[in-house]
């Protein structure tokens, strides 16, 4: 589904900065992968490259057999809109639109019929439990609801892959748990591949596999076994093993 080969990223500037070095990563169809690592290790950079919002300096990115970075700008935007879904830490919703309008936004740009959009929005809203707030404005809903709206928007066009950058970063643990369950059920039901960057071991423990990066390089990865609780413990251990600066994960919520 997703294949990275020797992806490197150098930020040019007054001082060139090497943010990623030779990253090789594969994600199967329907797999749920979490990416973890200390702050500044290059997680967002990596996700931006996969999401085609940023181009790698060297190396190749292949999504579903296509090489999106070879596409022209407009085609790339369409590719992103049709093949990928995004969930952001700050929800990234438009406050001038209602919840429903936010959800259907990617479809309107492609000129889908109004009735069809309405149907899809209703369906997805029902499955995410946001039906009653469809006509509210974004500032009238809670953070957890906003993130579910963002998930609905990311899912409405049935993307092949869902990319999430700290989707639970702005939520309390209850809301975070709800959102994670939601993502897992989508992943299982639709066989949508899921790539999630997170600092939260609790959130990461919902995934099939956690990939750790450090200083822009792949550090290690661990697979989920039978129990989520054991997986969670393994993640915590790995993080403390990896994090020289212990306070890096002080914000962990258990």
């Amino acid at each position: 589904m997703l294949k990275l080969t020797k992806v490197s990223k150098i930020y040019e500037g007054k001082v060139a900065y090497r943010a990623l070095t030779d990253i090789d990563l594969e994600v199967e169809k329907g797999e749920f992968v979490a990416i973890m690592g200390p702050s500044g290790s290059g997680k967002t950079t990596l996700l931006n490259i996969i999401s085609t919002n940023d181009a790698p300096t060297t190396g190749q990115v292949e999504i579903d057999g296509q090489q999106p970075h070879q596409l022209k700008k407009n085609a790339l935007a369409k590719f992103r809109r049709n093949q990928l879904g995004f969930i952001f830490q700050d929800f990234n919703l438009l406050h001038t639109l209602t919840v429903q309008e936010n959800i259907i936004l990617p479809l309107t740009l492609d000129g889908v019929r109004a009735s069809e959009m309405q149907n899809k929005a209703q369906q997805i809203a029902k499955s995410l439990g946001i039906g009653p707030i469809m006509n509210k404005r974004t500032y009238e809903i809670s953070g957890g609801q906003a993130q579910r709206v963002a998930i609905a928007r990311a899912m409405i066009h049935e993307p092949k892959m869902l990319l999430a950058d700290e989707p639970t970063g702005n939520l309390d643990s209850k809301a975070a748990k709800d959102v994670m369950k939601m993502l897992v059920s989508i992943n299982e039901r639709n066989k949508t591949s899921l790539l999630m960057v997170t600092h939260d071991p609790q959130a990461a423990s919902y995934s099939d596999r956690v990939v750790f990066i450090r200083d822009g390089k792949l550090h290690s990865e661990i697979h989920r076994g039978e129990s989520r609780q054991a997986f969670f413990q393994k993640i915590i251990d790995m993080l403390s093993l990896m994090g020289g600066e212990g306070n890096e994960f002080s914000s962990i919520r258990v």
Binding site: S51, R80, R81, L105
Partner: peptide, 15 residues
């Protein structure tokens, strides 16, 4: 800010 956030999802320049 608005266009930036939509562009992340995928908005072409011509749009």
């Amino acid at each position: 800010r608005k266009f930036q956030s939509i562009a992340k999802i995928g908005l072409t320049q011509s749009e």
